[in-house]
Design a binder for these strands. Structure first.
Length: 267
DNA sequence: AATGGGACCTGCGCGC
DNA sequence: TGCGCGCAGGTCCCAT
């Protein structure tokens, strides 16, 4: 799943390769990912635009094309961006940068969305988005939880609350901090929240440094896998032995999402 | 206000 | 070997 570390990895790779480059053409294999405008309008607006800047907000990737023209891409669950010489499997939209450089938006499930906007900050998802975890101090982080009765793990995944955390890193963070995923946020002691902050930040930084987690279909834009899978402690480890205490990792559904945790280590 | 469930979508793993 | 069922999950939307 492309969460903060995966989108950051994509951002860094594509910034290096595509900033300053011109989009020669757009091939729309499937118009469903394109929101707001017709395929024709989308294609015509983008054609011949130069990529000025690429940045990330939460799980949203944004290409600045002009002062008042942004291309926003949300990969949702299964979307990946592959920069290669050929059309890739499940390509839905292909941005042709010339010289055999095709940026493929691949998405088997067609949940990914791309849109053109004059002001990326006005995109509803951005307007309601919580703060960036990597741009917060621990005091600010702890203050977020004041008076929150919600379960901690679904809360971490709530994009209005905190930006960029999805099902993988929320599970990993609460395991690292020794917090039960169903603990009520306002019932967690301050020192435990501080631990959660340290865990979350270090996990995100580590994941970014190794190119994200290639669970399911995620790949870096050069087609290689991320390397954080081997560091995952609980995600998709249902029934396996806990790396800390050797007891069995359990799977529950919390906030409607599959959640693996160690009942012994996470009280 | 917070929580839960359905919809969107389809490849894939599993059971028979 | 082959078929069909249902899970997986980010976000939005609706209901309670």
């Amino acid at each position: 799943m492309p969460e903060l570390p995966e989108v950051q990895t994509i951002k860094e790779y594509l910034s290096e390769k595509l900033v300053g480059e011109q989009i020669k053409n757009v091939v729309i294999k499937d118009e469903r990912p394109i929101k707001g405008v017709s395929s024709e309008e989308f294609k015509e607006t983008i054609k011949s635009k130069q990529v000025k800047e690429i940045f990330r907000r939460g799980k949203l990737l944004v290409f600045k094309l002009e002062e008042k023209l942004f291309l926003a891409i949300h990969l949702r669950i299964n979307g990946i961006l592959i920069l290669s010489e050929k059309e890739e499997r499940f390509a839905r939209v292909i941005f042709d940068f010339g010289k055999n450089r095709l940026l493929n938006l691949c998405d088997s499930r067609v949940f990914a969305q791309v849109q053109l906007v004059s002001d990326w900050r006005k995109i509803p998802i951005v307007e309601k988005m919580g703060p960036e975890p990597l741009e917060m101090e621990k005091e600010e982080f702890a203050a977020l939880f004041k008076g929150k009765k919600a379960k901690i793990k679904p809360l971490l995944m709530d994009q209005h609350f905190l930006a960029g955390i999805g099902n993988i890193y929320a599970q990993e963070a609460v395991f690292c901090a020794g917090i039960n995923p169903e603990s009520r946020a306002n019932a967690i002691e301050p020192q435990r929240l501080e631990k959660l902050y340290q865990c979350l930040i270090s996990i995100l930084k580590k994941a970014i440094s190794v190119g994200g987690s290639s669970v399911d279909v995620y790949l870096r834009p050069d087609g290689t896998k991320g390397r954080y899978e081997s560091f995952l402690k609980v995600y998709q480890r249902n029934g396996q032995a806990c790396f800390k205490c050797n007891s069995q990792i359990k799977r529950i559904v919390s906030g409607g999402r599959g959640t693996c945790f160690c009942p012994k280590c996470q009280k």
